[in-house]
Design a protein around this nucleic acid. Structure first.
Lengths: 157, 157
DNA sequence: TGATAATTGGATAACTATATCCAATTCAAT
DNA sequence: ATTGAATTGGATATAGTTATCCAATTATCA
């Protein structure tokens, strides 16, 4: 139900949060998150226009988060690239329904509201800090990283 | 975030529930729900294969619900045409993540689980019975209906 | 059995999402 | 100023979703 674009954007931001405040290039992000590089650059453009990341051109440039991980929520990332559109008015355009939704669309909108709320309550810092057997994006705890090569071994699909 | 197909399927089933146990033709459903007739017939085929509706060919045929409205949930309708796919395993295919999801994907899956749960808890009967200023699909309480012509006046979009 | 009413499914079109490639642009470092 | 590293954006390709049309099929009623 979530688009590929959302999945990719969250992976990228999650990676950047773990590296903050260091800038990373599109190549580095693509390798770490296993997202097609060419497509990732478009997704990052969306995140940039949405004010989630900052991109710096030129030698030594790259992508950084605009906010610190504890101030950035999943919702902001999602809304930057593929907004959760709440149901504002009757999709059938029925005049009588006006502002109030019918019971059907009220339930659909409630579901969207729940997703919105739970995404609003998750910060990137929280995700990185959560004790878990699985570190986001990695087969192992990630080292600081400078030169950076392809990410560890990986099988399965 | 919900596809057009889901929206159309829910409208159709909602309408049929209000008419149950009378059969309605694709033309009648299309007019009442304002769904393009040709596309609706495809959506209904999906609902039929999914066991949500039964279609009867021939003179006097039409579409009916397989279950009574109090036994049919929104979730069953949604899953018949555009299933909610929970995140079962790490989308990156990281071996180390195995069965357990990382904190990021755990949160995404939780959101899906919430939607699933709230759809599982809504029956069509409940939706029709809910006191509301807006009756599902209609500008006014729907009469029994036989010959049936276009549905009332309607403006806005 | 014949006529009519209804679904079924194949072919096709338009649009959006996903993905790729590359030339142009920008900027830091020297 | 020149060079090299990096993003940017345009053009294009592919796949999936949404939508339409129509001939074929099925089943009921007279």
């Amino acid at each position: 139900m979530f688009s590929q674009t959302v999945e990719y954007a969250l992976r990228a931001v999650c990676f950047l949060a773990g590296q903050a405040p260091v800038a990373r290039t599109t190549d580095q992000i693509a390798a770490a998150t296993r997202v097609p590089k060419a497509y990732l650059s478009k997704v990052l453009q969306g995140l940039s226009r949405g004010g989630v990341v900052h991109s710096q051109r030129g030698l030594g440039g790259g992508i950084t988060l605009v906010k610190t991980p504890d101030q950035l929520t999943i919702l902001e990332v999602v809304n930057a690239v593929d907004p959760i559109c709440r149901i504002q008015e009757c999709p059938l355009g029925l005049a009588a329904h006006g502002v109030r939704l019918c019971p059907l669309h009220k339930r659909m909108d409630n579901a969207l509201a729940q997703v919105e709320a739970s995404f609003r309550n998750s910060t990137l810092a929280e995700i990185l800090a959560e004790p878990s057997e699985s570190i986001p994006l990695c087969d192992f705890p990630m080292p600081p990283m400078p030169p950076m090569q392809a990410v560890a071994t990986c099988e399965g699909g």
